[in-house]
């Protein structure tokens, strides 16, 4: 089991950052390589640039804690938990933390690598919409 974390400091209000993340259908806007997705209840299926489909189960979308939690349910993974936490540090100062815990370890690393770029996109969007 590997557990990895990336974070970014964003010069925007926490609500602005959370607005980007909270809608599960909007992930193609900020997760690199995700071309499209379908959402049916708590099930989300991502379609990547190279045509792969990645099924996910959304576990929590908590507007109070500003926390998004989900699992990749593709059989390649024996376990996956992804969480995105949006933490207000100030009026226009937010910490966004994207954590990945998964098995096999190698796949955890691949997903975590992509989440680092996702955070950069979230920052770009949030700071652009101030």
């Amino acid at each position: 089991m590997a557990s990895l974390r990336h974070e970014v400091r964003i010069a925007a209000a926490a609500d602005v950052v959370w607005d980007i993340i909270k809608d599960p259908t909007e992930i193609p806007e900020w997760f690199p390589g995700v071309e499209s997705c379908t959402v049916d209840g708590s099930t989300r299926v991502l379609k990547t640039k190279n045509g792969m489909e990645i099924p996910e189960k959304i576990l929590a979308v908590d507007p109070i804690l500003r926390r998004f939690a989900y699992r990749i349910t593709a059989p390649l993974y024996t376990f996956h938990l992804g969480t995105i936490d949006v933490i207000a540090l100030g009026e226009n100062d937010t910490l966004c933390v994207y954590s990945t815990t998964a098995e096999p370890d190698a796949l955890a690393l691949i997903i975590a690598g992509a989440t680092a770029e996702a955070l950069a996109e979230i920052k770009h969007h949030a700071e652009g919409s101030k």
């Binding site: 390589g33 990547t48 190279n50 792969m52 990645i54 190698a106 691949i110 992509a114 770029e117």
Partner: peptide
């Protein structure tokens, strides 16, 4: 290892 197809090297053949 590029499931999201982010890198040019992996994208060109497809």
């Amino acid at each position: 290892m590029d499931p999201f197809g982010r890198y040019a090297e992996n994208a060109m053949a497809n």
